[in-house]
Structures are given as C-alpha cells and as structure tokens.
C-alpha cells in the first residue's frame, strides 16, 4: 500500500452565484493510496459532495491540482474524462440518480453500454451479478418507482460496481438505510476493499459507519480539519452478526 492513486493539492472550488461567490472548498490537500478505505465526514454543507464530484472527475477544481493514478485530470479532454469515469470510477450518488421507468437491471447495465469491450451476454451477466452482490437479484425487473429508497440506493451501488472500477466513490451510500442494511452495505464495501483491493472513498456523517474504514478525513467549511488513521477497523460482518436477530418489535 504505497502507490498513490489520488493526489489532491490545494484544491479550491468556488461557485459564482450572480455577484456572490460561494467558496465550497478552500484549499484541500490529501493523498489516497491504492487499496485504502477512506471515509470523508463533515457536517451538511461542509463540501463533501463538492469534493467527491471532483474526485469522480465530474467536476473540475477552480484552483489546485488533482492527479488520478499520476495523471493530471485538469489536462484531460472531455472524452478522456468520460472514459475514466466509465472504466476506473464507480460513483454512488447521494440522490441515487437512477433512470426513471427503467428496470433495475437496465439501470445497472447502463455503464456497460458505454464500454464497447463488453458483449451483450457479458453485460447481462455482470449486471445480474452486481445485483446479486447487493441482494436485489429478485427485484431486477422493478423500476425505481417500484423500489424503496434503500433498494434504489442498492441499485445505485450495483451500478457503481458493475464495470469493475478500481475506485469506488460513494456519497452517503447508507444515508437512507436501516442499521442492518447499512451494515450489509459496509460489509460489501469491506469485502471489495480487502478481497479485490478496490480503493474506496466513502462520504458519510455517521461516526459508526466511519468506524468500518481505515482512515477518516474530516471536513469543515471547505477545509480538512482532521485526517486520522483508524487503528482498529471494525468488521462489518461481525457487527452484523452482533445485531439482534429478530426484527419483530
């Protein structure tokens, strides 16, 4: 674990709202090594989503450099960025962003459509596999409006996993889930992190979720206020087992 996969140097992001300037990020710097599981915490409005969008190559910083796998993102064309988003990054949005009136399976397949190397049959197989991983295989024909908020979130996670990215960026991926389901998701994340070596950056504002990660970056007001290694990472699987079995109360 010595290869830097992400390097951000003095990143600033400003939004111009008419004459007013909103400074969402005011100079953020940190590195993420390949295979790390980082959680980003901070109160609402602290700039977490803004930062994650930049990390996901969806947005560009107003100032500062962002290097992904040693490549300066600021110098890439729109098409190169699109390819990067497709192949290297699995993004889970805070607002899920599923296609309405489209089945869960097709939603999960979507990133594979933009990957010409994947055949029709492989696409189906991979999508079903990803839905199985989030325990939604039996709901794959349902459209988002026929799924609960938590189920929609799991479809969004499956979509992020389907193209086998090297890095998963999740924005409050457990925000709408009950404890059991969010632990299940965290167990999945830990598995992806440990067994497949995927780098995970996970935005949350719940401290008990952060306990499952190996490192926590704390944002406040667009600045990093704390960056701590987590010495004893909690196992999500064990936490899950420790939960009371019966839900009938």
């Amino acid at each position: 674990m010595d290869k830097k996969i992400l390097e951000i140097q003095q990143i600033k992001r400003e939004f111009r709202m008419g004459t007013e300037i909103v400074r969402a990020l005011k100079g953020v710097s940190f590195d993420v090594f390949a295979g790390e599981f980082v959680t980003i915490m901070g109160s609402s409005g602290s700039g977490k989503t803004t930062l994650l969008n930049i990390l996901g190559c969806l947005d560009k910083p107003t100032e500062g450099n962002y290097l992904l796998d040693g490549v300066n993102i600021g110098q890439l064309s729109r098409n190169e960025l699109a390819r990067l988003r497709n192949r290297k990054i699995g993004f889970v949005f805070q607002a899920y962003n599923l296609l309405p009136r489209t089945s869960a399976l097709e939603n999960v397949e979507l990133p594979l459509f933009y990957n010409m190397e994947i055949s029709h049959e492989d696409r189906r197989k991979k999508a079903i596999h990803a839905l199985e991983a989030v325990k939604l295989a039996e709901r794959m024909d349902h459209t988002p409006s026929q799924l609960s908020g938590g189920q929609q979130q799991r479809v969004a996670i499956a979509r992020a996993l389907v193209n086998e990215p090297v890095m998963i960026l999740a924005d409050e991926a457990t925000g709408n889930l009950d404890t059991r389901t969010s632990y299940e998701i965290m167990a999945l994340m830990q598995e992806l992190n440990r067994e497949q070596g995927k780098t995970i950056v996970f935005v949350t504002h719940e401290p008990d979720i952060a306990a499952f990660s190996s490192r926590t970056v704390m944002l406040r007001d667009g600045k990093v206020v704390k960056d701590t290694k987590n010495e004893n990472v909690r196992s999500a699987k064990e936490a899950l087992a420790a939960l009371p079995v019966s839900d009938d109360y």
Partner: peptide, 16 residues
C-alpha cells in the same frame, strides 16, 4: 437533462 447528466457521469461521451 438529468438523464443526460447521469449518462455522462457514468461514462457517456459527448458523441454518445
């Protein structure tokens, strides 16, 4: 517009 944004964010290029 949102669908377009989503497609782009998961890897659709302008030409797609």
């Amino acid at each position: 517009t949102r669908e377009i944004g989503l497609r782009m964010s998961i890897g659709a290029r302008g030409i797609d």
